[in-house]
Design a protein around this nucleic acid. Structure first.
Lengths: 346, 346
DNA sequence: TTGAAAGCGCTAACAG
DNA sequence: CTGTTAGCGCTTTCAA
């Protein structure tokens, strides 16, 4: 069958212990022996069997990423960052998807007990205290990405501030009837962005109007951060007729794209009839000239992996919290550049 | 530490063999015993250790997906289909990414020898005869997706026919100066689509003009199926001035989006000055009204997994070839609907 | 420095 | 039907 450590040992005329030491540069081993063994390893094309090694070493060199649904573009960018960094550390990556069938608790329990992974990245996942307690008890290294819990390491973004700045930007363009389209409030970024939006209104003495807030949860089981949800939400705002807002802060770019479709269908113009600011800065935002709050998704993924690997390999103390900044990217949909030339593709 | 099969056995007052039989419903076991064991399993929250099981059983219940880069939107759709089906079969999914650092051969060898997965899906990966030979020798079940080799199972799409239909559609709109923007020719879909394009021209007595064909390989290391590449390629076509084509078949929607940006920047209009047909039907195609050839990405992923699992669990004969059909989705960028109303979001 | 041997936790063959 | 035992392939003491 496959070549094993015994084959290598026999061929090199040594014991299997020596082979193991050679390939792991562990213990002490004579340079000459090591060389000889490594030559045989290459000759036979030997590579340790992952399960055997995992069993003996209690480490799989695999990390798990748990994502709620395929949240789409945000997640893809993040995954890019994660994937690159993971493979840099010579780890493999298992993708766990939570949805209606695979409930979060089930997956977490499964992952914790099977010990198929050495650590986990939980993406945009709201954790209850109970769940956190279980996680900590299992001693499996965990890093939260795009969500927060005081007792776990996390990599997040300044959602409150970001939403605040976005809203403020709209206010500064002279708007006072400013709506918001948000994702489902079970998502904590969605909740926090709503706060930021409200704070900005309050600080500028603009009253919050319930009818100007639309929470997208159009499709059950999803988080509302998708194009259709944005489309539906904007339709709802447009039904307000002449009372409609003149500007809307949309909680994700992909929803903003849907929203703009709705506006266009109504024969209205962005930004003249309705100004829009999104959130995320996905690749397409640039293309369609969407003003948005950039979050450094790629870097977030990368950093989360760095931290996770650190937790796995070193003994570290808990309490890592990294909060990335968002930045306002002004393009055409907010009206600020109304009389300037279009931006270039870079 | 973690609860093992011994803990369960002791608590239930049986041997470990019995526990194993109970949780695997293998061998024969008295209903009462089984019940008792299962109760203890639940009580203790026992779950077999993946590595130990993998070692003993020689099966990991994991499948690997190898993708070249993150080919973007096409891949995301595919992954959706794959992920859903994989978890339906109770498998986990390891994502391997091939890029400059992680060369294809390295990854394949690694995967074949580590035996971390029970089977592999290779996405859009061109395989040499040599590689195929090694794959077959390893006896690891493999299914090719979006690429083809006579000696391996594969799930593909009618690229030639698709490109033919797209081009023909443009011809039928009255165009005779028809260009093509293609991905890098190391990608077999790119090559085959080029053939389809040429065939359509030939069958309609239109000469192939070298200057109307632009191969995007703008960014090294990528396959050209991205927005910037499409943008650059269209720029190049527009440099032809009044000799430029009046219609272009673009090999992927995401390139088409870039191409349309270039057209717009030149102050030209789609479809009046330049008609466009794309390929893929990614989610955004609908939004921007892009006429395109739809390929059933989700279904392709699903079917590939079905077949792979079949290969893993049953003894099957080689030679599975599924070719999905493409279908022309007429929207606004080809000019066919010039005088009709816009399409709706569905 | 190195070989031999004892597990790692589980499955599966083998007695009973 | 069920307990015992021999591996699965590797890492890691423990002597030598």
């Amino acid at each position: 069958m496959s070549v094993t450590i015994y084959d290598v040992a026999k061929r090199a005329g040594v014991g299997i212990g020596t082979v193991s030491r050679a390939i792991n540069n562990s213990g002490s081993i004579a340079p000459r022996t090591k060389e000889k063994v490594l030559a045989v390893v290459k000759e036979l094309g030997y590579r340790p069997h992952a399960s055997a090694r995992g069993l003996a070493r209690r480490r799989t060199n695999t990390i798990g990423v748990v994502v709620p649904f395929f949240t789409g573009y945000f997640f893809v960018e993040l995954l890019r960052g994660i994937q690159g960094e993971v493979s840099k550390f010579q780890y493999d990556l298992i993708l766990y998807n939570v949805d209606e069938t695979n409930k979060k608790e089930m997956i977490l329990r499964k992952v914790l007990q099977e010990r198929k992974v050495d650590g986990m990245l939980l993406i945009s996942l709201e954790m209850t205290n109970n769940e956190v307690w279980e996680l900590r008890r299992s001693r499996l290294p965990i890093v939260l990405v795009d969500s927060y819990h005081p007792d776990l390491d996390s990599v997040t973004v300044e959602n409150r501030r970001g939403a605040y700045v976005a809203t403020q930007h709209l206010i500064r363009q002279g708007h006072s009837r400013i709506g918001m389209i948000d994702g489902h409030l079970k998502s904590s970024p969605a909740r926090v962005r709503l706060e930021g939006y409200k704070n900005a209104l309050r600080d500028h003495d603009i009253g919050f109007r319930r009818e100007y807030l639309v929470i997208s949860d159009y499709v059950t089981g999803e988080d509302g951060f998708n194009r259709k949800a944005g489309y539906q939400a904007m339709k709802q705002l447009l039904h307000l007729g002449s009372n409609r807002p003149t500007a809307v802060f949309v909680s994700s770019d992909i929803q903003a794209i849907g929203a703009m479709k709705a506006i266009e269908e109504d024969g209205l113009n962005v930004p003249n009839d309705m100004a829009i600011v999104g959130f995320d800065d996905i690749e397409l935002a640039q293309y369609i000239g969407l003003t948005t709050m950039r979050q450094p998704m790629f870097e977030m993924g990368k950093l989360a992996v760095d931290r996770l690997v650190e937790c796995i390999t070193d003994v570290v103390t808990n309490g890592f919290k990294k909060v990335f900044h968002t930045s306002l990217i002004v393009r055409n949909t907010c009206g600020a550049l109304r009389h300037q030339s279009h931006n270039q593709i870079t």
